[in-house]
Design a protein around this nucleic acid. Sequence first.
DNA 1: ATAATTCAGATTGTATACAATATTCAATAT
DNA 2: ATATTGAATATTGTATACAATCTGAATTAT
Lengths: 221, 221
Amino acid sequence: MKIFATNLAKTASSSDVIFDALRDSIISGQIQAGESMRQAHIAELFNVSRIPVREALKRLEAQGLVQSLRYKGYVVSPLSHAEMEEIYEIRANLEPIVIEKSVANMSDETLEEAKEYCDSFSTEAEASKWGEWNRLFHETLYRDAERPYHLKLVGEAIDRVDSYLRAQLVLTNGMEIAIREHHGILEACLQRDGALAAKRTREHILGSYRVLIDYLGNQSK
Amino acid sequence: MKIFATNLAKTASSSDVIFDALRDSIISGQIQAGESMRQAHIAELFNVSRIPVREALKRLEAQGLVQSLRYKGYVVSPLSHAEMEEIYEIRANLEPIVIEKSVANMSDETLEEAKEYCDSFSTEAEASKWGEWNRLFHETLYRDAERPYHLKLVGEAIDRVDSYLRAQLVLTNGMEIAIREHHGILEACLQRDGALAAKRTREHILGSYRVLIDYLGNQSK
DNA sequence: ATAATTCAGATTGTATACAATATTCAATAT
DNA sequence: ATATTGAATATTGTATACAATCTGAATTAT
């Protein structure tokens, strides 16, 4: 018997809720790398048994955000400099392709929404929210690309780095540069110049990586 | 309390065994897209309860190989032409980077092993094994790159396409071309010419995509 | 004092059980 | 004949229970 997926909509199960909540806690930096999480402890927090907790953790593990240490609980995966470099390299190679494709189909609504996030990022006072605005800005610009697989990969890669970045509030550095670059990317999109948007996106990603490396270098002194 | 991951080795649980077995069945084409799999049915096959089965399925779902249709079982995710195109685009962009880095560190043992897989691919009579040799050949050449994150992404992308390709035995087409290109890539590696290996890898991937599209085009006539 | 040993408690992986909900198919109405 | 309803069945998601095994600290031996 053959069945093809049609109605993906489904009421969220506990397992899904826990997955989302844990993921948010990790990428927002509330749970830090190396912190040990017991299944029973998480189950208590959500007032459920360990069964849905385990399923959520398996999914987080498949995504690489978390790893299991048998009899020692789950931990948020530590992020090595090497892995961070890989992730920025991947982003620098994939995101320009996505934005170029997106610009070709970009609606006016998308542009407006992106502008709002860009402004929010520029004017937001509370540092803890910068990561969110930053992400919304970029995600919005990629929306019209019709490249779901690219976006899944890039999204998970960003999750991975965000889990570390936000915990450390690294974003504080290079804010002025990031704001300027965001405006540059947005401007290219408004002019419907996909190639330029792609070029600036690539430079933006490589630039943020350099800022990050610089910060980590100073940090260790 | 902080705990950092050290001993990742652990005895495989039922859940792990089931995950591996299902993944193999899917990427080898034994379970085809759209085929419905009941939790209880899988549990019977492995002589276990549904609990470890569910965990394995959640992991496969996170990887995109499978999707849940509530009350209708899990199905192997159908692969659209659009998604296939995305995957080949990603591979064409990432794998050249990996092989170039790999060639820079490539050991003689790696080269020898790759040559064996290359020969096996060329001389194998049984079509069902070509996919396996092909994959081992490429994976071996990427081994010395020290790019685990790249390899994880590329590996999962290949899983996704293999699940479809092998089921259809599409590999039959363009074999002579693939063999010639494999030799070309291997030769570039033997000459320690990373840039050339990268270029040929990219062409090889784009070429296989063209063969595939061509095949699918003829198929639908 | 230090090293080895032991044992209680903690933690995990999975089987079983059960309520909630969807599906299916026969019976009925149109 | 086709559409609608309803009850029996099937399927899922999760709670509970339990055996296996690890950890950690007290205890013993050196």
